[in-house]
């Protein structure tokens, strides 16, 4: 318990991202496979018709329509009035959900720090693209949200908020995701950064999907969790529930554990595939820059 207390109060004082890295990611943007309606004019295609340069459709003229939008070439041929409709370009709602349960406080570097960096990078990319960014930390059964931000100038407030986020409480992904989905009016792209150490995470994700969110799961694991190096007689203490478990780690058990981890990850991935979510698994040992600059682009989540 002592360890839990010390790590809980730890904050991430160092900068999450370097300026060089920020310059590199400025060119990227978050890919949304579907079209979402926005709130303000932005750079994304919206479901609405509006005033952009991109032709969308024709419709019959109705009394009161703006004559400037009549397609006179069609009128010349057909002697009927048709209105040209253009695609409206609006902003995209990008929500980044950060699991801040105590289990994220593990690893070297800590999983939470790694997750924060991913969150920071993704939110910066979104802000740079004039998308509307909302952040939330998931712990316990609720989601602590940061009010939606827009524009690059908001990046610092986002970073500050991320730095201030601390681990606390158990993970109830199902409850906290449902809480988030109920409170959010505008659907958009949701990125869940978590270790998914919860037995019914699927309910939470289903809740998001039912609200028409486009969900991306970023599964962050500690290398030690994937391939434990400790052997011997141990008393394992769960960081979240403080549950104690006597265990003698042998090669046989390690083999079983690894098989179990593979099964666990495979279960999340197959669930994600079934529901049409993106799924990306990273460990805290893989290079963060490579993840953002190449891996996520290869997976088609950034472009």
């Amino acid at each position: 318990m002592e360890q839990i207390l010390t790590t809980e109060n730890q904050t991430d004082r160092e900068d999450l991202l370097t300026p060089e890295f920020l310059r590199k990611v400025e060119q990227l943007s978050i890919v949304a496979k579907r079209v979402f309606p926005g709130q303000m004019r932005g750079e994304r295609r919206s479901t609405k018709r509006g005033a952009s340069v991109e032709f969308a459709d024709y419709r019959n003229y109705a009394v009161g329509d703006d004559f400037r939008r009549v397609d006179w070439n069609v009128y010349a041929r057909l002697e009927k009035l048709f209105m040209k409709l253009f695609v409206e370009e609006e902003d995209l709602h990008v929500y980044i959900l950060l699991d801040t349960s105590r289990s994220m406080n593990f690893g070297s570097p800590r999983k939470l720090l790694y997750a924060k960096r991913i969150a920071a990078a993704l939110s910066y990319i979104a802000l740079a693209n004039l998308d509307r960014v909302g952040l939330a930390s998931l712990s316990g059964s609720s989601a602590m949200t940061l009010s939606q931000k827009r524009g690059k100038q908001s990046a610092f407030s986002v970073f500050e908020w991320l730095k201030s986020v601390q681990c606390s409480g158990d993970t109830h992904l199902a409850d906290s995701l449902r809480d988030f989905s109920l409170r959010t009016r505008q659907p958009g792209v949701v990125m869940v950064i978590s270790d998914f150490f919860d037995t019914d995470y699927q309910k939470g994700i289903s809740a998001l999907l039912s609200r028409n969110f486009e969900v991306t799961l970023l599964h962050v694991l500690d290398q030690e969790e994937v391939e434990p190096s400790t052997v011997g007689d141990l008393l394992l203490i769960d960081s979240e529930t403080a549950e104690r478990r006597e265990i003698t780690i042998t090669q046989t058990l390690l083999k079983k554990y690894k098989a179990r981890v593979a099964e666990f990850c495979g279960g999340i991935e197959s669930f994600a595939t079934r529901c049409g979510c993106n799924y990306v698994r990273v460990t805290n040992q893989s290079s963060f820059e490579d993840l953002i600059l190449s891996y996520l682009r290869q997976r088609g989540m950034l472009k």
Binding site: I4, M104, N105, L236, E243, R245, L253, K256, A259, F264
Partner: peptide, 19 residues
């Protein structure tokens, strides 16, 4: 036994269950 803090015993629990 040496005490060791782990992020979650969930996975260990399952691995240990059958042995």
């Amino acid at each position: 036994r040496k005490e060791q803090m782990v992020s979650s015993v969930m996975l260990w629990q399952d691995a240990v269950a059958d042995i």
